[in-house]
Amino acid sequence: MSQADLAAKLGLKYYTFVSQVENGFSRVPTELLGAWADQLGLEQRAFARHLLMYYEPELHRLLFGAESKSK
């Protein structure tokens, strides 16, 4: 799926924010995690957990410990 496709599915006027996120300069806003997961065809919990690993690695480690890396 292209950045423009995802932006269209999310109802964004421009796809530039998707690029911001993909380039690692911005985070998916918490309130939009569910929508992003749905449009990407991913399970919401798994998607949020996966992003948490990058956004807040220490918090992720405390919450999920070593089990997380295998999921």
Partner: peptide, 24 residues
């Protein structure tokens, strides 16, 4: 940076350690 379509982007980043994008 550039988008996957090759359009340019300028990011204003906040202070370390987060360096979160404040404006694009």
């Amino acid at each position: 940076g550039v988008t996957e379509s090759g359009d340019v982007q300028f990011y204003l980043l906040g202070p370390r350690p987060e360096e979160a994008c404040q404006l694009c």
